[in-house]
Nucleic acid binder design. Structure first.
Lengths: 241, 241
DNA sequence: ACCTGAACACCGTTCAAGT
DNA sequence: ACCTGAACACCGTTCAAGT
C-alpha cells in the first residue's frame, strides 16, 4: 500500500499511450521492477508473479528483466526487503524492554497482514534480511540483562512465533478458499473432539488479534521469568557436568 | 524414513524387470502414489515432485496419476497427513500438563527435522489436519484449567512457535546453499551491529536444540503464569467496559 | 547498453482414444 | 476401469541478433 513509487510507471504509461516506444529504453530499473512486482503480488498473489506477466505490467518483454535482475529469486528477495523497510521502528526510549518487544513484534505482524502474499517469503533463509530491525531488538534484549546467547535465543523465539502465527493467519487470506474447502475432512476422530477443535479454531479465526496478543504476552512473560531465575544459565551449567 | 510401505513398489519394479507391463494395471493407488511421493520429496525436495517425475518413479505415465488423485495439491495434502501420522503420541497420564505439552511440541519438531521438505507444507491452511493430535493437546490444556478460549489461543501459540521455528531451521537444510550464498549482503548497518547479529545467528544455528528448548520453555512458563493470574480473563473483562 | 525473437527444456491438466 | 498420446496453455532462462 505504501511502497514509495518513483512515478516512473506513470511516465511509462504515458509513453505507451503516445506510442513513444523507443523511450522504454533506460526507463527500466531494479527498483521499478521490484516495486511493480510488489503491487502485482499484493493484488494477485505470488503465482501471478511470472517474468512474462511482470514484464507485461511494465510494457516490456520478459527477457528485458534479465538486464536488471539476475533471476526470479532476486525479485522475491527484493519483495522481502520492501516489506521489512515498511516495519514501523520502535523508539528505543519508550517504556520497558517488554513493551518495546511487544510493539516491535506487533509491528512486524502488521506489515504481514498488509502484505499477506509477501509475508510467507520471510520463511526463506535469506542472508541478513531485516538486519537493522533485528539488531535493535537484540540491543534491547542485551540491555534488559540477557547474555549474548540468551538474547539470540529469545529473539529467535519471538520471530518464530510471529512469523509462524502470521504465516498461518495470512495463509487463509491468500489461498483460494476452494483449495481449503476441497481438503479432505476429518476422520477417525469422534464428534465431541471435533466440536472442541472447531470451537477452538473459530475462536482464533474470529479474534486473531486477541489470539496473537495472548501468545505474545505469554512468550514475553516467560522470557521475563527466565531472566529473573536465570533458567538458561542454570541449564548450561548443568549441561557441562 | 519410516513410512509404512505396502511392498507394492518392489512388486512393481519386479514387473518392470520381467516386462510384465500389463500388470501395471490396477497396481496404482492413492496410497502408493503418496508414499512414493513422500520418498521422492524426502530425497530430492518439493521441486522434484512433478506429476511426470512421480509417474516415472512408479513406472507409469503422468496422466495415470489422475485416475487416483484429483490434482497435485491432493498429493501435497497426503504428504502432510503422512507426516502427522508419524508424530509420536504423548501419554495422557505422564507427568504434568507442562511436561506433556513440552513433549508433544518436541515430537512435532522431531518429525519436521526428519522430513524438512514436507514440514513447510504444514503452513498451508489444510482443513482439519492433525485433528487427533490437536485434540489431545486441547484436552490437556482444558484439564489444566484453561477455558475454551484460552486453550485455543494457547495451542495456536505453541503451534505457531514450533512451526515457525521448524520452518526457519528446515529452510536452510532444504534450499540450495547457493540460493542463500547469493542473497545480497547487509548494508546500511555498521560493523558492530553486524557482528552482534552474526554471533546471535551462529549461536542459534550451532545449537538449534538449545534454542528451541529455550523458547518452548519460555512459552510454557508464560502460559502457566497466565493461568495463575488469569490474565486472559482479566483482559476480557477490561475489554467489556 | 539495453531490448527482444526464437528456442530449450520444462510445467499441470484435459480429453479423446485405446484396452 | 484404468492407462496413455497428443495437445493446450503455460513456466524460467539462454543466447544470438538487433539498435
Amino acid at each position: 500500500l505504501t511502497y514509495q513509487t518513483s512515478g516512473v510507471e506513470n511516465h511509462l504509461e504515458a509513453n505507451e499511450r503516445d506510442g513513444l516506444v523507443d523511450s522504454k529504453r533506460g526507463s527500466l530499473s531494479r527498483d521499478l521492477i521490484i516495486e511493480t512486482a510488489a503491487r502485482l503480488v499484493d493484488r494477485e498473489g505470488l503465482e501471478a508473479l511470472t517474468m512474462r506477466r511482470l514484464a507485461g505490467e511494465l510494457g516490456v518483454k520478459a527477457m528485458s528483466l534479465y538486464n536488471h535482475v539476475p533471476n526470479r529469486t532476486a525479485i522475491l528477495y527484493g519483495l522481502v526487503e520492501l516489506l521489512l523497510a515498511e516495519i514501523k521502528p520502535v523508539s528505543n526510549r519508550a517504556a520497558s524492554w517488554q513493551e518495546r518487544l511487544q510493539a516491535a513484534m506487533s509491528n512486524l505482524r502488521r506489515v504481514g497482514l498488509a502484505h499477506p502474499h509477501i509475508f510467507v517469503l520471510m520463511l526463506r533463509p535469506w542472508r541478513a534480511t531485516g538486519a537493522q530491525q533485528a539488531d535493535r531488538a537484540l540491543q534491547n534484549l542485551l540491555a534488559a540483562g540477557f547474555n549474548d546467547e540468551e538474547a539470540g535465543y529469545a529473539l529467535r523465539a519471538l520471530m518464530s512465533y510471529v512469523i509462524g502465527f502470521g504465516a498461518w493467519e495470512t495463509a487463509r487470506m491468500v489461498r483460494d478458499p476452494q483449495e481449503i474447502a476441497e481438503a479432505p475432512s476429518v476422520d477417525g476422530i469422534d464428534a465431541v473432539a471435533a466440536s472442541h477443535l472447531e470451537a477452538m479454531r473459530s475462536n482464533v479465526v474470529h479474534s486473531p488479534d486477541a489470539a496473537f496478543e495472548f501468545g505474545l504476552r505469554a512468550i514475553i512473560a516467560g522470557l521475563e521469568q527466565s531472566l529473573r531465575t536465570g533458567a538458561g544459565r542454570i541449564d548450561r551449567e548443568a549441561a557441562k557436568v
